[in-house]
Structure formats: structure tokens, C-alpha cells
Simulated scan of single mutants.
Amino acid sequence: MKTRLNCPCGEYITATNEDELVELVQAHLAAEHPGREYDRESILFMAS
């Protein structure tokens, strides 16, 4: 299960499960990187 993602901007996002990670990453993208959107598969591909 992938629960961590390091954004190129330096933000380190961690969650307890993949569903939470996808939600947190999508919220981070909306707040910090408007116009950047990734689907679940892309987020999990980049996560560890």
C-alpha cells in the first residue's frame, strides 16, 4: 500500500491509506498548484 508522496515543491504528504493519500494530494494540488490535476492512478504511480 502506498501512503507517501513527495511533491516537487517540497511538500511531503503522508496518509494512513491510499484513499486518504489521493484525497490529500488532490487537495494539495488544488490549493498550491491550480490547474494541475492528477487521477488516482497517476498519484499512486508517483507515491511510495
Rank of each mutant, 00 (worst) to 15 (best):
M1L: 14
K2H: 12
K2D: 10
K2Y: 12
K2R: 15
T3K: 06
R4S: 08
R4T: 11
R4H: 13
L5T: 02
L5I: 12
L5V: 07
L5G: 05
N6V: 15
N6F: 13
P8M: 08
P8F: 01
P8A: 10
C9L: 14
C9I: 12
C9K: 11
C9F: 11
G10W: 07
G10M: 10
G10Q: 13
E11S: 13
E11C: 11
Y12Q: 12
I13H: 04
A15V: 02
A15H: 04
A15L: 04
A15T: 02
T16D: 15
T16S: 15
T16F: 10
N17D: 15
N17G: 12
N17W: 04
E18C: 10
E18D: 15
E18Q: 14
E18W: 07
E20A: 11
L21N: 04
L21W: 02
V22D: 01
E23R: 08
E23L: 13
L24W: 00
L24G: 01
L24P: 01
V25D: 02
V25A: 04
Q26W: 01
A27S: 14
A27G: 09
H28G: 00
L29C: 06
L29Q: 05
L29F: 07
L29H: 05
A30G: 07
A30I: 03
A31C: 07
E32V: 01
H33S: 05
H33Y: 05
P34H: 08
P34G: 06
G35F: 00
G35K: 00
G35Q: 04
G35S: 08
R36T: 00
E37K: 08
Y38K: 01
D39R: 02
R40H: 03
R40P: 01
E41H: 09
S42E: 15
I43W: 00
I43P: 02
L44D: 05
L44E: 10
L44K: 04
L44H: 05
F45A: 15
F45E: 15
F45I: 11
A47I: 02
A47K: 02
S48C: 12
